[in-house]
């Protein structure tokens, strides 16, 4: 198009260019300058892992960002196991969150790839067994719970306890990539009794809640946060571990009365990441926040650490940072 007749409009175009150039030049000379942004690049922190720890970690990251806007933490929910095997133990992520301690296979994988790490406890979560508000279940013993969730599980409620009706048990629970799933197996029925496959598996807590609310023959389990915020329509089942029925609450979880369903939540920073000053600084901030009642309990719904546990964790972190450098 331009080459049809270059003579004709040359004046307009040249005049505009010259005017613009002159204008910009004058303005630049007047001292309207700024410095290069090249060296102020934001530094990223990659956090992967458990969807149970995700709300806590993202709340802490959000708070941290408010005073450190050149650091950009990103948090994602891959599940504890997915995070270890796909990202963390391959050396691609800085922190991996987990709702259970790292497993031997994962330790092996990390070791093979030369990824070293330190285990930090963040908070306590209580695993809640829920039934519908109108359910006939109020309290279960650990053995009864195991009968419901083991791989060769009971089909109807009256197999669990004679007084329960002869109705089929509808089960809703965590997907097998979830730390919550592993936790239930280890602390209730034990590895060898496994986990039933006759249940609706999901990573989404509200799907479990919806399912359980919908039927009085349903039972489900998930982390404490969800139940803490939404008691309507759901009833938490008390657990009898031989010392009478204990309902889950912040107090019973922290005091350890609510057994065996309280669990610790962890994060695993890699040693390589801790050798960076800004990541070490972030890690210190994370441990500082673990006793923050407002953040951990009210905004996220977990049980904060006690002062003494926090100090242990801080000591562990400082040792690791020193070793990393």
């Amino acid at each position: 198009m331009m080459d049809t007749d270059p003579e004709r409009f040359s004046t307009t175009s040249r005049r505009t260019f010259l005017t613009a150039a002159a204008g910009a030049g004058t303005a630049a000379l007047a001292g309207c300058t700024q410095s290069s942004t090249a060296d102020q690049e934001t530094k990223s922190i990659t956090i992967t892992g458990s969807s149970t720890v995700y709300p806590l970690m993202s709340a802490i990251a959000e708070e941290y960002r408010q005073n450190n806007d050149n650091v950009d933490p990103t948090v994602n929910r891959t599940g504890s196991g997915g995070g270890f095997s796909n990202h963390f133990c391959v050396g691609n992520s800085d922190f991996n969150n987990a709702s259970r301690p790292i497993q031997p296979e994962e330790e092996q994988l990390c070791g093979d790839n030369g990824v070293e790490y330190v285990e930090l406890t963040l908070a306590t979560d209580a695993l809640t067994i829920v039934v519908s508000e109108d359910s006939f279940v109020d309290c279960l013993t650990v053995e009864e719970l195991a009968r419901i969730w083991e791989s060769d599980s009971a089909d109807t409620w009256n197999e669990i306890r004679d007084e329960f009706p002869n109705e089929e048990i509808e089960r809703y629970g965590a997907a097998d990539t979830s730390g919550t799933y592993d936790y239930l197996i280890e602390n209730v029925q034990g590895e060898e009794r496994g986990h039933t496959s006759d249940y609706t598996a999901t990573e989404q807590d509200n799907q479990i809640a919806q399912g359980v609310m919908g039927s009085e023959n349903a039972i489900g389990y998930f982390g404490f946060a969800y139940f803490f915020q939404n008691p309507d329509g759901l009833k938490a089942v008390g657990i009898d571990n031989g010392n009478g029925c204990v309902k889950p609450s912040l107090e019973t979880a922290r005091s350890g009365e609510y057994q065996p369903l309280t669990r610790s939540l962890y994060t695993y920073p890699s040693m390589e990441a801790l050798s960076e000053d800004y990541i070490a600084d972030f890690a210190r901030y994370v441990v500082e926040q673990t006793t923050n009642q407002e953040l951990v309990a009210e905004n996220v719904g977990y049980v904060p650490l006690s002062e003494s546990t926090q100090q242990e964790q801080m000591q562990k972190l400082e040792d690791a940072i020193e070793q990393a450098n």
């Binding site: 934001t42 960002r65 990103t74 891959t78």
Partner: peptide
Amino acid sequence: GMATIAFS
């Protein structure tokens, strides 16, 4: 492993 939440 795309971030679920990023702040910037």
